[in-house]
């Protein structure tokens, strides 16, 4: 009997191979995805999750009239716009520079990628020390017209500091995707252009840039996804030292931070579940558009 089962499984080995992934992904991803819509129609609390009441759309009404949610939405949108523009521009430029015939380009690439692998909590802790009032860095920046203040607790410095840090940590990741796409461009194209007398800028303008179109679309959507679901760094930077999320005055509050804080700090489950669904819909639309664009190219 056992032998028979083993033989059957070996013949249908894909069942065995897929089983762990399917079981775990259904329990910890698929069911939660479905459940996230279901629970957004209920009023409940973690303290007593079995006792809940059906409230239909009250949670959505509450969240859409909550000033903090609207602030979080506004912050996130501003964040997304600046992050996407800056990151797409910077990662492309750095990738092109690294691809020029220069010495030690691998060393520069390794170093620029490094912040991506560093623990966000360490980055948050380090940044909040570096940008503290009277630190060497802040005193240096004061020479250029910035105020001598603790950046992560002063508006509007905190928002821009978080933005800058996130751009800095993600730059290397997008850069290496660009580099590998540039490496796939056939060398002959550049040689032909050189014979025609094209300079470096023209080669970039008429060969590299247009041929990177698909990569640009990919990076655009990856940047959008990263920036819409931003949480770790702004949360850590704004709460280090015991302050509340979004410090100062919700100016660094993002959508995911709003969900996390309402669910796990303030026990406002209704606001958190409704905000999750709204963010889910945003991400779904983005992915859908990306797929449509991907099919076309």
């Amino acid at each position: 009997m056992l032998k028979k089962i083993l033989k059957y499984l070996d013949k249908h080995i894909y069942l065995v191979l897929l089983a762990p992934f399917m079981i775990l992904s259904i329990i910890f991803t698929l069911i939660p995805i479905i459940n996230s819509f279901y629970i957004s129609f209920f009023d409940f609390s973690f303290l007593n999750p079995s006792k809940r009441s059906f409230v239909l759309l009250d949670n959505f009404k509450a969240v859409l009239t909550d000033d903090v949610f609207l602030t979080a939405l506004k912050n996130t949108l501003l964040f997304v716009v600046v992050f996407v523009l800056a990151e797409m521009f910077l990662s492309l430029i750095v990738a092109v520079l690294l691809n020029a015939k220069i010495k030690y380009s691998n060393l520069y690439k390794t170093l620029i990628y490094l912040p991506y692998v560093v623990t966000p909590i360490a980055i948050g802790g380090i940044i909040s020390q570096l940008f503290k009032k009277n630190s060497s860095l802040v005193l240096f920046l004061a020479k250029f017209g910035f105020e001598n203040v603790t950046w992560n607790s002063t508006a509007p410095y905190a928002f821009w500091l978080v933005l800058l840090i996130v751009i800095w940590t993600q730059l290397g990741f997008f850069m290496v995707i660009y580099i590998s796409a540039i490496k796939e461009i056939p060398e002959e194209l550049y040689e032909a252009a050189e014979i025609d007398g094209a300079n470096s800028f023209k080669k970039f303008r008429y060969i590299t840039y247009p041929l990177l179109k698909n990569t640009r679309t990919l990076i655009l959507f990856m940047c959008l996804l990263v920036s819409f679901q931003l949480f770790d760094l702004p949360y850590l930077i704004s709460t280090i030292g015991g302050t509340s999320p979004g410090t100062p005055n919700n100016t660094t509050m993002t959508l995911v931070m709003y969900i996390y804080a309402n669910a796990f700090r303030y026990n406002n489950m209704g606001l958190a579940t409704a905000a999750s669904v709204i963010l889910f819909i945003i991400i779904f639309i983005l992915s859908f558009v990306q797929n449509k664009l991907g099919e076309r190219s």
Partner: peptide, 16 residues
């Protein structure tokens, strides 16, 4: 499921 960031299903994952 690769497109769905865990960040937006924090609460149902916690419940699960």
């Amino acid at each position: 499921i690769m497109m769905v960031p865990t960040q937006i299903i924090l609460i149902p994952i916690f419940l699960q």
